[in-house]
Amino acid sequence: MDRNGLAELTDRARRLADEAGGGRCVLGIAGAPGAGKSTLAAEIVAALGGRAVLVPMDGFHLAGAELERLGRADRKGAPDTFDAAGYVCLLRRLRHPERREAVYAPAFDRALEEPVAGSVRVDPDVPLVVTEGNYLLLDDGPWAQVRGLLDEAWFLDPEPETRVRRLVDRHVRFGKSRPHAESWVARSDEPNARLVASSTHRADLVVRLGHHDLGSP
């Protein structure tokens, strides 16, 4: 995807905002770890100005202490290390607001490696919510309910070499040594990536990116 491709995606998101008709639409951007989901979502939201807000799935990571209690800390990022049911409840609230008031969503702080509640404000007059994450298209457990809450779903599918390099670099940037980062990607992130890839067919649009298209996620 070149810059014209990004412009086309932005126009597609803008049409969703226009179609909200005084209500709200939800655009989901799915993809494997390191695909560039957060970068693409942020660019689209910035281009739409105050007409869109980014609500990341990663805000529903379970806290580190809870992952330790459950014995899942070494699999952080797998589907069962998120509060998927909580994410579904938030999407329902965002899609069908009961009152004309702001909704607050959590976000994930990569420096802390923890979710932070109440980080994202969604005002009642915002016509488009853009949400991004690995498991938006999974058809299993609570995740299976997410697809029905998205007006449109995109699957971001960059070149595998680009995605893995970007992912390792991100882990290094946030404190892991490069050998540790490479080991973590191979042991944890890549099995998750294969699971995510199995859900591609549930997307309305597959977006393929080259290695020059997006910056670091």
Results as ranks from 00 to 15, higher is better:
Met1Gln: 09
Met1Cys: 11
Arg3Lys: 12
Gly5Cys: 02
Leu6Glu: 07
Glu8Leu: 14
Glu8Pro: 03
Thr10His: 06
Arg12Asn: 14
Ala13Asp: 12
Arg14Ser: 14
Leu16Phe: 02
Ala17Met: 10
Asp18Pro: 04
Asp18Thr: 11
Glu19Cys: 08
Glu19Pro: 07
Gly23Pro: 05
Cys25Asp: 11
Ile29Gln: 02
Gly31Ser: 07
Ala32Asp: 01
Pro33Leu: 04
Lys37Glu: 12
Lys37Val: 09
Lys37Ile: 07
Ser38Trp: 06
Thr39Ala: 15
Thr39Asp: 13
Ala41Ser: 15
Ala42Gly: 14
Glu43Asn: 10
Ile44Leu: 11
Ile44Tyr: 07
Ile44Cys: 08
Ala47Trp: 01
Gly50Asp: 15
Ala52Trp: 08
Val53His: 03
Met57Phe: 10
Asp58His: 01
Phe60Val: 03
Leu62Ser: 06
Leu62Asn: 05
Gly64His: 12
Glu68Met: 10
Arg69Thr: 07
Arg69Gly: 07
Arg72Tyr: 10
Arg75Pro: 05
Ala78Tyr: 03
Pro79His: 10
Thr81Phe: 01
Phe82Trp: 06
Ala84Ile: 04
Ala85Met: 03
Leu90Pro: 11
Leu91Tyr: 03
Arg92Lys: 15
His96Glu: 15
Glu98Thr: 13
Arg100Phe: 12
Ala102Lys: 04
Val103Ser: 02
Tyr104Asp: 13
Pro106Phe: 00
Phe108Trp: 05
Arg110His: 11
Ala111Cys: 05
Glu113Asn: 14
Glu113Ser: 15
Glu113Cys: 12
Glu114Ser: 01
Glu114Pro: 01
Pro115Asn: 02
Pro115Tyr: 02
Ser119Arg: 12
Val120Lys: 00
Arg121Ile: 10
Val122Thr: 08
Asp123Asn: 10
Asp123Cys: 12
Pro124Cys: 02
Val126Lys: 03
Gly133Ser: 05
Tyr135Thr: 05
Tyr135Ala: 05
Leu136Arg: 02
Leu137Glu: 12
Leu138Trp: 05
Asp139Thr: 10
Trp143Met: 09
Ala144Pro: 05
Ala144Ser: 14
Arg147Met: 09
Arg147Pro: 08
Arg147Thr: 12
Asp151Ser: 01
Asp151Phe: 00
Glu152Met: 05
Ala153Gln: 05
Trp154Cys: 02
Trp154Lys: 00
Phe155Lys: 00
Leu156Asn: 01
Leu156Ala: 02
Asp157Tyr: 09
Glu161Ile: 06
Glu161Ser: 14
Arg163Lys: 01
Arg165Leu: 14
Arg166Cys: 13
Leu167Ala: 11
Leu167Phe: 06
Arg170Gly: 03
Arg170Tyr: 02
Gly175Lys: 00
Ser177Asn: 04
Ser177Lys: 03
Arg178Glu: 14
Arg178Lys: 09
His180Arg: 14
His180Trp: 13
Ala181Gln: 07
Ser183Arg: 15
Arg187Asp: 14
Asp189Gly: 11
Asp189Trp: 08
Asp189Pro: 09
Glu190Asp: 13
Pro191Ser: 04
Asn192Thr: 08
Asn192Asp: 10
Arg194Ile: 09
Leu195His: 04
Val196Arg: 01
Ala197Ile: 08
Ser198His: 07
Thr200Cys: 13
His201Asp: 14
Arg202Ala: 15
Arg202Thr: 06
Val206Cys: 10
Arg208Lys: 06
Arg208Leu: 03
Arg208Ala: 05
Arg208Glu: 07
His211Asn: 11
His211Glu: 14
His212Gln: 14
His212Cys: 11
Ser216Met: 13
Pro217Ala: 15
